[in-house]
């Protein structure tokens, strides 16, 4: 039974492996989109003008209140129309079709960003105000304060939460299989259909996901430790 997972033309090993790579590619891209959206929305919520604040609040409330799968379907059916409409504003005449990869990354990224917003907002607020005032008193510019004072400290507070958002984003990529993107779940489904061995293929997929989540958990723990260097605690751990 296990020869089905061999690499090469007669086995499914290489298809599964390429699916796992695609899963990681979608997850990392969506996570980056999420961090970008999340930073923007957090900045809007913390110090934006009222309309931007409302927009950010609307974004996080709506997206965190509906299933990620619904967001994927919405972009799958409505995304091309939206992009085409934007393109006509810029004078482009034809219809723009979105690839399954673009739909998947955009949808999972939008969801990821809504959760990242709250993590980043909380982390920025955890940086003592006095530090920013002190930096301003020293004559630092906004960008310098951001780079030297705010980001390094906020990152430390944000890391555990961002780790959770990553785990969620990685698991959400499975949903992109519904629009036939050849990631791990989709490849497992194709393998199951042609060999009639669903248990084998889904257990393989489950093990690969388990490896990914466990490794990334260790990675985030290492990052946290690095960000915590130089911080003294009452109790060492």
């Amino acid at each position: 039974m296990l020869d089905l997972l061999r690499f090469g033309s007669e086995g499914w090993g290489d298809e599964i492996a390429s699916g796992a790579v695609m899963t990681l590619l979608v997850a990392v891209s969506a996570y980056l989109v999420g961090l970008f959206l999340g930073s923007g929305a957090a900045a809007a919520k913390l110090s934006g003008p009222a309309p931007l604040r409302w927009l950010a609040a609307l974004y996080t409330t709506v997206v965190r209140g509906v299933p990620a799968l619904l967001v994927i379907w919405l972009l799958f059916f409505g995304g091309s129309g939206l992009v085409t409409w934007v393109a006509t504003l810029f004078g482009y005449g034809g219809r723009v079709e979105l690839s399954a990869f673009a739909v998947g990354v955009a949808a999972v990224g939008i969801v990821s960003g809504a959760y990242a917003t709250e993590v980043i907002r909380g982390a920025v607020r955890a940086v003592p105000k006095g530090q920013l005032e002190a930096a301003r008193a020293l004559g630092m510019g906004r960008l310098l304060i951001l780079r030297r004072i705010l980001v390094p400290q906020a990152l430390r507070y944000a890391l555990p939460g961002l780790g959770n958002v990553w785990q969620m984003t990685l698991k959400d990529t499975t949903l992109v299989s519904v629009v036939s993107l050849a990631e791990l779940m989709r490849q497992a489904y194709l393998g199951m259909q042609s060999t009639r061995q669903p248990f084998l293929f889904y257990v393989t997929a489950a093990i690969l996901y388990m490896v990914m989540t466990t490794c990334s958990e260790a990675l985030f723990r290492a990052l946290s430790r690095r960000a915590d260097r130089g911080v003294r605690r009452a109790v060492s751990n």
Binding site: K171, T174, S177, P198, Y202, A206, Y209, T213
Partner: peptide, 15 residues
């Protein structure tokens, strides 16, 4: 540590 969709498929198709 595994996605819910895998769990659903394992129970529905796998078993």
């Amino acid at each position: 540590s595994t996605p819910l969709l895998v769990q659903i498929f394992l129970i529905y198709y796998g078993l």
